[in-house]
């Protein structure tokens, strides 16, 4: 049991280091509070954005927390890959540059074969996607799906996109 834990931890930590480096341009790692007896302790996330000192995740800025959490989730996903991923507004806190980096990373992962369904109001995310499903509500609160806009084609019926951001 300890062996399988250690193996999983090593994999996820390895993934985290690589993914964090790319997404946040800095050094990140997962730390077991009690490496010899992991089950008696916990696991913290430490990260060091470029130029700054190593800090624990709770002390970071809102955007840095988001980016670090996303890198952590992606590390878990890379260890246990699924055929599709659904992400709901995970780019809320991110500035334009980080939203762009995230969108680029999702795009690259989707090219490798995974399907991504991402709810977002952010222009960088929408621009990097292959197609967009527009959702609006009619006067009585009923959802209307206004159309699937394949990028590169006429924007068509998707006024929902123009309203946001």
């Amino acid at each position: 049991k300890l062996v399988s834990f250690k193996k999983a931890f090593e994999h996820v930590d390895g993934n985290f280091k690589a993914i964090f480096q790319e997404l946040a341009d800095g050094q990140g790692r997962l730390v077991l509070t009690n490496p010899e007896q992991p089950f008696t302790g916990g696991m913290t996330i430490e990260a060091q954005p470029r130029g700054k000192k190593m800090q624990r995740i709770e002390a970071m800025s809102g955007g840095e927390k988001s980016l670090t959490s996303l890198a952590f989730v992606f590390s878990l996903q890379r260890y246990l890959p699924a055929p599709f991923y659904a992400l709901d507004e995970v780019d809320m806190n991110l500035d334009g540059i980080n939203a762009e980096k995230l969108a680029h990373m999702v795009k690259r992962e989707s090219i490798k074969g995974a399907q991504f369904i991402v709810v977002s109001l952010r222009k960088p995310m929408i621009d990097h996607s292959d197609q967009t499903v527009g959702v609006t509500q009619r006067k009585n609160g009923i959802t209307k799906v206004t159309g699937v806009n394949l990028h590169g084609e006429e924007l068509g019926d998707v006024e929902a996109i123009n309203e946001v951001n």
């Binding site: 980016l67 500035d95 540059i97 980080n98």
Partner: peptide
């Protein structure tokens, strides 16, 4: 206003 982690908060 400014980028993430710049010091606004």
């Amino acid at each position: 206003s400014g980028p993430n982690g710049s010091g606004k908060s």
